[in-house]
Simulated scan of single mutants.
Amino acid sequence: MDLSEVRTWFLGLPTITRFLFTASLAVPLVAQFGIVHPYLLILRWTSITRELQASGACAHASLLWRLVTTFFYNRLGFGLLMNLYFIYVHSRELETTTFDGQPADYATFLLFCGICSTVGGILLDLPVLNDALVLAIAHYWSLRNAERIVSFMFGMRFKAKYFTAVLLGYELLLSGHLPVGSLLGAASAHLFHYLVEILPAQGGRRWLTTPAFL
């Protein structure tokens, strides 16, 4: 592919997916090349409380910066490539099918999952929430495409409703510890699904709606 083909491919991505993909690549790169220290990109409760107590616009901007960059920071490596692939495939499909013509609704989904994951990350002292973002997207995609047959590594084929379990199991085997961040993302997406789709379908109140400012 030459540069014009790359540009055409990139501009062909839907807007929100393009932002997620770009941020998930750019943030690790600026940390890797020393442009920004990784500590300034992660979520640390002690840093947040210290910055909240500080005065001045710079301190509050740093707080807001951390709350966003924690979802995009990752170390360069195979894990980052996998996350970029899942964002490209599943976020793009969600944005062009489930949320087609409804970017504000998709932004609401991401904002809701982000808030839930942030609260969980603070309580569990998780400094990086990139996996939470990716699993939230992948899990909601699997809920919306439950009966579709998907392929995973080494030619494994199964219904999409098992996709999240397979991803969590793969991460557990690869890392050797419980993928808490990924579990947070999946749980937040499942809660969104329950509040927006399952509960209203059962005659309950829809507690979550798209904010007017979006």
Rank of each mutant, 00 (worst) to 15 (best):
Met1Asp: 10
Met1Val: 13
Asp2Trp: 02
Glu5Pro: 03
Leu11Arg: 11
Pro14Asn: 08
Pro14Val: 09
Pro14Ala: 12
Ile16Cys: 08
Thr17His: 00
Phe19Val: 15
Thr22Ile: 04
Thr22Leu: 13
Ala23Cys: 04
Leu25Glu: 02
Val27Asn: 09
Pro28Asp: 00
Val30Phe: 00
Ala31His: 00
Ala31Asp: 03
Phe33Met: 08
Gly34Leu: 09
Val36Asn: 09
Val36Phe: 02
His37Asn: 15
Leu40Ile: 08
Arg44Cys: 11
Thr46Ala: 12
Ser47Phe: 14
Ile48Ala: 12
Leu52Ala: 01
Ala54Trp: 02
Gly56Phe: 10
Cys58Gln: 09
His60Trp: 11
His60Asn: 09
His60Ala: 14
Leu63Ala: 13
Trp65Glu: 02
Arg66Glu: 04
Thr70Ser: 05
Thr70Gly: 09
Tyr73Arg: 07
Arg75Phe: 03
Arg75Asp: 11
Gly77Ile: 02
Phe78Val: 14
Leu81Glu: 06
Leu84Ser: 07
Leu84Ala: 10
Tyr85Pro: 05
Ile87Ala: 04
Tyr88Cys: 02
His90Cys: 10
Ser91Lys: 03
Arg92Phe: 13
Arg92Gly: 12
Thr97Pro: 05
Phe99Tyr: 15
Pro103Thr: 06
Ala107Arg: 12
Ala107Cys: 09
Ala107Trp: 10
Leu111Gln: 15
Cys113Asn: 13
Ile115Met: 03
Ile115Glu: 00
Thr118Ala: 15
Gly120Tyr: 06
Gly121Val: 13
Leu124Asp: 01
Leu126Gln: 12
Leu129Phe: 05
Asn130Ser: 14
Asn130Glu: 06
Asp131Gln: 11
Asp131Lys: 06
Asp131Tyr: 06
Ile137Gly: 02
His139Lys: 05
Trp141Glu: 09
Leu143Ile: 08
Asn145Ile: 01
Asn145Gly: 00
Asn145Arg: 03
Phe152Ile: 10
Met153Asn: 04
Lys161Tyr: 04
Leu167Lys: 04
Gly169Asn: 12
Glu171Ile: 10
Glu171Ala: 14
Leu173Asp: 14
Leu174Ile: 06
Leu178Gln: 05
Val180Met: 12
Ser182Arg: 14
Leu183Arg: 12
Leu184Asp: 07
Leu184His: 00
Leu184Trp: 05
Ser188Ala: 15
Ala189Leu: 00
Ala189Arg: 03
Ala189Ile: 06
Glu197Ile: 11
Glu197His: 14
Leu199Phe: 03
Ala201Val: 03
Gln202Pro: 03
Gly203Ala: 04
Gly204His: 10
Arg206Ala: 09
Arg206Tyr: 00
Trp207Glu: 09
Trp207Tyr: 11
Leu208Thr: 00
